[in-house]
């Protein structure tokens, strides 16, 4: 843990370390991780898709050298998939074994009442941790040395599911009716929740988290991101390509190109041995950055003008 403490000592050291792991982050992002670690609070990260919300959690796990436990949310996700499940098969086997050993257990009990009494005295393990199959949330609590828990796209899960999370988010513990409360190991997990804003997250959940909004990055940061992710890119191309993407984000599009698209595009153009943006090449590769035919059609006619603008 010493290493982590050192890393999380200041915002600047976190920022430098993220950069060393090829994740270029703004002051806001670094501050969020700093506070999350120091105050032991989960971070709820919101922002448009593809700005590096999930990547932040992954990089943090890599950086802190902690295991990453990920829970992908979807409609209908419930506690048996997120928290725990009983190993039903094993429980069945257990009853079979018990049945065979029943004579031993009951001994010389006479009559029904006495037999039940004997059964009660016998230590029953039917509902015990032995037969518990931990799912991501419980696994995260049981990690002795801490871990990064990523609850991805919480807005995809049902509203009720958020309530299931409240206990773990505020107290790092889970209550199981048959067993009792399971508390986090010595080092509680560092929790990242992400949301794409497809619906409002409840106040109760927000209250328990730090709230970080990651917008599309500014020109400078995005260029550094491309430099870190696609180091082989020629400098002229790097500059023009990012400027082009920023121009696109000013247009009225169905889906804006995100950082992940900028990176994909940079990789594509590098593979095509481009040294600078060329209108024809841009037209041919528009489908890498725009995901709707409608957008592609609209942008195509603008390509020469935009390319000229960012090359000038």
């Amino acid at each position: 843990m010493g290493d982590i403490e050192k890393l999380a000592e200041s915002v600047a050291s976190l920022q430098a370390s993220f950069e060393a792991h090829r994740y270029i982050c703004s002051d806001e992002i670094a501050t969020a991780v700093f506070l999350a670690y120091q105050l032991r609070k989960p971070i709820l990260i919101e922002g448009p898709p593809g700005v590096g919300k999930t990547e932040l959690a992954k990089t943090a796990a890599e950086m802190f050298a902690l295991p990453l436990i990920r829970l992908q949310c979807y409609e209908g996700l419930d506690e048996s998939k997120a928290i725990y499940e009983w190993k039903y098969g094993k429980q069945l086997l257990y009853t079979q074994v018990l049945k065979e050993a029943l004579n031993e257990v009951l001994g010389d009990a006479k009559g029904f009442r006495e037999s039940v009494q004997q059964l009660h005295n016998f230590g029953d393990i039917f509902f015990s941790e032995e037969f518990l199959e931990p799912r991501p949330l419980m696994k995260a609590l049981k990690e002795e040395d801490g871990c990064i828990l990523l609850i991805d796209e919480i807005d995809k899960a049902d509203h009720e599911f958020e309530s299931l999370l409240l206990e773990i988010l505020s107290d790092y513990q889970l209550s199981i009716p048959e067993i009792g409360t399971i508390k986090a190991a010595a080092e509680p997990p560092l929790v990242f929740l992400t949301s794409n804003n497809t619906r409002e997250i409840s106040d109760a959940l927000k209250r328990r988290c730090l709230h970080l909004y990651i917008p599309f990055p500014d020109l400078d940061i995005e260029q550094r991101i491309i430099g870190a992710r696609v180091p082989e890119i020629p400098p002229a191309l790097q500059k023009q390509l990012v400027a082009f993407i920023h121009e696109l984000r000013n247009l009225d599009l169905k889906k804006m190109p995100a950082i992940s698209e900028t990176i994909d595009w940079a990789r594509t153009l590098v593979l095509l041995h481009a040294e600078a943006l060329d209108p024809n090449m841009v037209k041919d590769t528009l489908n890498v950055i725009l995901k709707f035919q409608e957008d592609i059609d609209n942008v195509k006619s603008e390509v020469p003008a935009l390319t000229a603008k960012v090359s000038g």
Partner: peptide, 30 residues
């Protein structure tokens, strides 16, 4: 959240206003 804000202030102090603002903006408005 008020308690969180107090902890955050204890952690970052008042000396760097930009830092304080960034920190509190994650604790108070949601």
């Amino acid at each position: 959240e008020t308690l969180d804000a107090i902890s955050a202030v204890e952690l970052v102090g008042y000396s760097d206003k930009a830092h304080l603002k960034r920190s509190l903006s994650m604790v108070l408005p949601k």
